[in-house]
């Protein structure tokens, strides 16, 4: 019953159709179908797009287009998961964002999409995210990992500020922190006390797996 809607949802993501994914999500909720199943289907669709990107068959606009299509359905499905009191299974929960003062979105969105495709529950806080907003996001979503991006040498120090804020609030030991972006180097990541750095988006997924103690 209703499997055709799941198929339509999956297809809508792979053809980057935001309107259609949203429609499918609303129909799924209306028919009282299992929202966890819907989430699995979406993750699988994103994984397929991510794999195509990895093989060099698909390109950045395809990856970002699929992510945007999924984004149209995610809040509806998550609301339903909350309503029915179900628990979402994932490799771990990750809060991600580009730090305050920095409005670069592409690298961060790539990483968020590939992390989702890799099986993580990802909450994307967007760009220009303050230390306080990171703190709220981490608490609200019980994040296992915080992922921060900074493209500019002038905004990279903001990553240090976020880590210091977490230390002050006594949250630093409860979370793993990974950093990336054009301005970040391995040495810088170490100097600010991050748990990991990788210069590439696929590398970030492997890094998140390592931080969670998972094998790929």
């Amino acid at each position: 019953m209703g499997t055709e809607v799941l198929e339509e949802l999956s297809k809508a993501i792979t053809i980057y159709d935001r309107g259609e994914t949203e429609r499918c999500a609303r129909e799924l909720v209306q028919r009282k179908m299992d929202p966890l199943k819907a989430l699995d289907v979406m993750t699988e669709a994103i994984r397929q797009v991510g794999d195509g990107f990895g093989r060099g068959e698909l390109w950045l606009p395809d990856l970002v287009g699929a992510a945007a299509a999924m984004e149209a359905a995610t809040p509806i499905i998550e609301e339903e998961i909350k309503r029915v009191g179900a628990t979402r299974e994932s490799l771990g929960s990750i809060v991600i964002g580009t730090v305050f003062g920095d409005i670069h979105t592409i690298g961060k969105t790539m990483v968020a999409t590939l992390l989702t495709a890799g099986g993580f529950a990802v909450v994307d806080l967007g760009i220009n995210v303050t230390a306080e907003s990171f703190l709220e996001g981490i608490t609200e979503h019980h994040a296992d990992i915080l992922a921060m991006s900074a493209l500019m040498t002038t905004t990279a120090p903001e990553q240090r500020k976020v880590i210091e804020t977490l230390e002050r609030e006594g949250l630093r030991d409860k979370i793993k922190i990974m950093v990336g972006g054009g301005a970040i180097t391995e040495e810088f990541a170490k100097s600010i006390g991050a748990d990991g750095y990788d210069p590439t988006a696929p590398g970030a997924v492997a890094l998140a797996m390592r931080l969670m103690g998972k094998k790929q």
Binding site: G56, W59, L60, P61, G107, G182, T200
Partner: peptide, 8 residues
């Protein structure tokens, strides 16, 4: 242009 592989 955007390098559609890396975003750079």
């Amino acid at each position: 242009s955007v390098n559609m592989r890396s975003g750079a």
